[in-house]
Simulated assay, not measured.
Amino acid sequence: MTRRSDAHPDLADPRVGAPFFSTWRVGTPLRQRQAVEAVAVAWERRPWPADDLLGYHLYTGHDTSTLLHYSQWTSEQAYEAFVRTRRQERVDEIDTAVPGIERLGLGRYRHYRSGGPADRGGRVPGCVVIVDVEFEGPDPDRQRAWVDAVFEALENEPAPHPGGIAAHFHLSTDGTRVLNYAEWASAQAHLEALAAPGDGIGSATALWERVQTWPGLKSSTVSRYDHALGLVPG
């Protein structure tokens, strides 16, 4: 069976061999809520589709228009089997309930590194921040080197913001992108970190400048979300 959960996912779960991220544009806060409920109903009325799916989570964008989807699969092969046999019936039901959803694409990733305070103090994220970084062309070595440089800058940050809980870096399988799923205490804490001296959440240090001017870095976007729905096997 399928059940709802308010718990946030464990991004560093070693069983997750194929994490997927995708975004829908639905247009309004009302349609965000309607789409989340439509997904919940379409999934709850059916058996959990596969043992290889560990969890499926939805997030409402602070832009009041988008939904972020994050699913935790053990392998891409398991996901492809789901697409062939179980996905379309769910899509059809959701699209009937909320017509006009614009699906903006599916990102295939691998988890690379996670970090944060050694003691999270049991804090539950009040805001999820997605940092999507694109590079000029595929280069897996560059992906890893850039993330390693971010960790070096974080470890030497002279004034870390107390609102940061954890950061989970994922590398796209095509070698062109890095996605950081960052957990923050609140959206306000993230905004305060951005407003502090420096470019982004880091201080004005040479290590952060190296991160921001990395050769081949094409673009980066920052989006804030609230965890709206977790679906897990019952």
Results as ranks from 00 to 15, higher is better:
Trp48Arg: 03
Trp48Thr: 05
Pro49Thr: 01
Pro49Gly: 03
Pro49Gln: 01
Ala50Met: 04
Asp51Ile: 00
Asp52Leu: 04
Asp52Lys: 08
Leu53Gln: 02
Leu53Trp: 04
Leu53Lys: 02
Leu53Phe: 04
Leu54Tyr: 05
Gly55Pro: 10
Gly55Tyr: 09
Gly55Trp: 07
Tyr56Arg: 02
Tyr56Gly: 00
Tyr56Thr: 01
Tyr56Ser: 11
His57Trp: 13
His57Val: 10
Leu58Trp: 11
Leu58Glu: 09
Tyr59Cys: 10
Thr60His: 07
His62Ser: 06
His62Asp: 11
His62Lys: 07
Thr64Glu: 15
Ser65Cys: 14
Thr66Gln: 05
Leu67Pro: 02
Leu67Asn: 04
Leu67Ile: 15
Leu67Ala: 07
Leu68Gly: 06
Leu68Tyr: 06
Leu68Val: 05
His69Pro: 00
His69Arg: 06
His69Met: 13
Gln72Leu: 12
Gln72Pro: 06
Trp73Gln: 00
Trp73Tyr: 06
Ser75Val: 08
Glu76Trp: 09
Glu76Met: 13
Gln77Ser: 11
Gln77Gly: 06
Gln77Pro: 00
Ala78Val: 04
Ala78Arg: 02
Tyr79Gly: 00
Glu80Arg: 13
Glu80Leu: 15
Phe82Val: 01
Phe82Thr: 02
Val83Asn: 11
Val83Cys: 12
Arg86Met: 12
Arg87Ile: 00
Arg87Gln: 15
Arg87Glu: 14
Arg87Met: 15
Gln88Trp: 07
Gln88Arg: 10
Val91Thr: 13
Val91Met: 11
Val91Trp: 14
Asp92Lys: 11
Asp92Phe: 04
Asp92Ile: 11
Asp92His: 10
Ile94Cys: 06
Asp95Met: 15
Asp95Ser: 13
Thr96Glu: 14
Ala97Gln: 06
Ala97Leu: 04
Ala97Val: 01
Ala97Lys: 02
Val98Glu: 04
Val98Ala: 08
Pro99Ile: 07
Pro99Ala: 08
Pro99Arg: 06
Gly100Leu: 05
Glu102Thr: 15
Glu102Asn: 12
Glu102Asp: 15
Arg103Asn: 15
Arg103Ala: 15
Arg103Tyr: 15
Leu104Pro: 01
Leu104Asn: 08
Leu104Thr: 09
Gly105Met: 11
Leu106Glu: 07
Gly107Pro: 07
Arg108Ile: 01
Tyr109His: 14
Arg110Lys: 10
His111Met: 09
His111Ala: 12
Tyr112Trp: 06
Tyr112Cys: 03
Tyr112Asp: 04
Tyr112Lys: 03
Arg113Lys: 14
Arg113Ala: 11
Arg113Asp: 03
Ser114Trp: 07
Gly115Leu: 04
Gly115Cys: 03
Gly116Ile: 08
Gly116Thr: 09
Gly116Trp: 08
Pro117Gln: 10
Ala118Thr: 09
Ala118Leu: 14
Ala118Arg: 09
Asp119Phe: 13
Asp119Leu: 13
Arg120Val: 13
Gly122Arg: 06
Gly122Trp: 08
Gly122Asp: 08
Arg123Lys: 07
Val124Trp: 00
Val124Leu: 10
Gly126Leu: 11
Gly126Ile: 12
Gly126Asp: 10
Cys127Ala: 15
Cys127Asn: 09
Cys127Trp: 00
Val128Leu: 15
Val128Arg: 05
Val129Thr: 13
Val129Gly: 05
Val131Trp: 02
Asp132His: 13
Asp132Ile: 00
Asp132Pro: 00
Glu134Phe: 00
Glu134Ile: 05
Phe135His: 04
Glu136Cys: 03
Glu136Tyr: 01
Gly137Val: 08
Gly137Ala: 07
Gly137Phe: 06
Gly137Leu: 06
Asp139Val: 01
Asp139Leu: 01
